[in-house]
Design a binder for these strands. Structure first.
Length: 426
RNA sequence: GGAGAGGUGGCAGAGCGGCCGAAUGCGCCGGCUUGCUAAGCCGGUGAGUCCUUUUUUGGGCUCCGAGGGUUCGAAUCCCUCCCUCUCCGCCA
């Protein structure tokens, strides 16, 4: 969430930012509740001070007089209680409103209503020109007996899949390669819970608002399946005050990711593009509250992802995500889209976000600066590799006319040295 | 799942109705001492919020796992929840 002081001082900017994101907010309501709460808070402090002082006086009075003095205090107490209840109600309302205020997008976030207006900022390599009719990833995989959708549906419904044989191994190879690359860069690998309390979802900005996209356990356990390791990893140090010397924290985590994909019926129904469960290696950076540092980290985590795609020899482009396609918590987001022949276009495979202190304020994730001042951290994250979509790109871009699939050199060590997956079919 | 113990400042740990935002030790910061280092000595050292002050400063309120209750007054008593530890059971 944003700092209330910031909102008060920059109401116009907050309003404009929300408009850029196409998120309706009632800022006047928030400011009005805030003003009332602050006014009441001042009065409450005075009342409480009097109450505290009187109670202390009773403690010091001769025991014989205490009952009488206490009787007087009892009456004042009920007045105080009424004001305290009113204040608590205002605070709760304020908190609810505040959680809904989106972060202010950066100036260089493009205007635009949805993903069709994202602005391409970089393109690497060229889509391959096939000298045969390329298949989509489903056809490539089914021909090799690598994928089963019917049985997966029997087990878990639509948008699920079973990987079999080499494709299952390829998934593992991609994940492990991505993980190893990041560890080599000094990122600390973490294995984290993927079933989390809703506080972690609120803290990272997915709730309120994203409840429909998350699987939730029943009332016996108030736990939510995460859609990304970003949630547990960014929440790892919530409630802590970190030492400046320990920053930045660079984490990488491989986890399963779960997405309900509510409201996407009929969209991307074929294949692995939009599925309920996949594996992902995610990178998270936690550092000091400094714009330049944050921007440098943002570039760094985008480059980390680019290196993976270059290693896999997969053409990609980077888009600067426009206001209307940006989530509430982000200041800015760069999506990396990888070429997918069956889509005749680029499909989103990575999402690199920076948040300033939006998440850390919700998580109460702070650090003590060199100057001794306690501040909220800045957080950032990006995909390193997400299994399902990376498999689409690898199968489709590296398929051969004979039905086999070429393995990019860096992955071979993870596949017993093999340069080719599958048997010749044609 | 059953039985018990406990959650206090960066850490350890005392406090178990008012003198407690909190002893003591360690750590950390500053100073003194010292050829350098260590040891020693002195002082400082939680967070949030509001008010005051040009800055320094001073003051009010809130916070001792979370939420509720009892009381004039709660870290201390009661209730609910969360978490940790020990023993038993079950199990990967």
């Amino acid at each position: 969430m944003l700092d209330l002081k910031f909102i008060r001082a920059h109401a116009a900017a907050v309003q404009a930012g929300a408009a850029k994101k196409r998120i309706p907010i009632d800022l006047d309501k928030l400011l009005e509740v805030d003003a009332r709460a602050r006014e009441l808070s001042g009065r409450l402090d005075v009342l409480r001070a009097a109450q505290n002082e009187a109670s202390k006086a009773i403690g010091k009075a001769p025991p014989a007089d205490r009952a009488k003095l206490a009787e007087l205090q009892k009456q004042k107490k009920s007045e105080l209680k009424i004001e305290e209840d009113r204040f608590a109600a205002l605070e709760a309302e304020l908190q609810t409103l505040l959680l809904r205020i989106p972060n202010v997008p950066a100036d260089d976030v493009p205007e635009g209503k949805d993903d069709t207006e994202n602005v391409e900022v970089k393109r690497w390599s060229e889509p391959r020109v096939f000298d045969f009719g390329p298949k989509d990833h489903v056809a490539v995989a089914e021909a090799q007996g690598w994928i089963e959708f019917d049985r997966a549906a029997k087990l878990a419904g639509s948008r699920n899949y079973v990987l079999r044989g080499d494709l299952s191994l390829l998934e593992g190879a991609v994940m492990r390669f991505a993980l190893d690359r990041m560890v080599a860069k000094g990122f600390v690998p973490l294995t984290v819970p993927t079933l989390v309390r809703s506080e972690a979802m609120v803290g990272t900005g997915y709730f309120p608002g994203g409840e429909e996209q998350a699987y939730r356990c029943d009332e016996r356990d108030d736990l939510v399946l995460v859609g990304t390791a970003e949630v547990p990893v960014t929440s790892l140090h919530s409630g802590e005050i970190l030492a400046a010397k320990d920053l930045p924290l660079r984490y990488v985590a491989l986890s399963s990711c779960y997405r309900r994909e509510a409201g996407t019926y009929g969209k991307d129904t074929r294949g692995l593009y939009r599925v309920h469960q996949f594996q992902k290696v995610e990178q998270v950076v936690i550092d000091v509250a400094d714009e330049a540092t944050s921007l440098a980290h943002h570039r760094e985590i985008v480059e980390n992802a680019e290196e993976i795609l270059v290693a896999f020899e997969l053409p990609y482009r980077i888009v600067n995500v426009c206001g209307g396609d940006l989530g509430a918590p982000q200041v800015q987001k760069f999506d990396i889209e990888t070429w997918m022949p069956s889509r005749k276009g680029y499909g989103e495979t990575h999402s690199a976000s920076r948040f300033h202190d939006y998440q850390s304020r919700r998580l109460s994730l702070r650090y003590r600066g060199e100057d001794g001042v306690v501040r909220f951290c800045h957080t950032l994250n990006n995909t390193v590799a997400a299994s399902a979509r990376m498999l689409i790109a690898l199968l489709e871009n590296h398929q051969r006319a004979d039905g086999t699939v070429w393995v990019p050199p860096p992955l071979r060590a993870y596949l017993g040295g093999r340069e080719t997956l599958g048997r010749q079919l044609a």
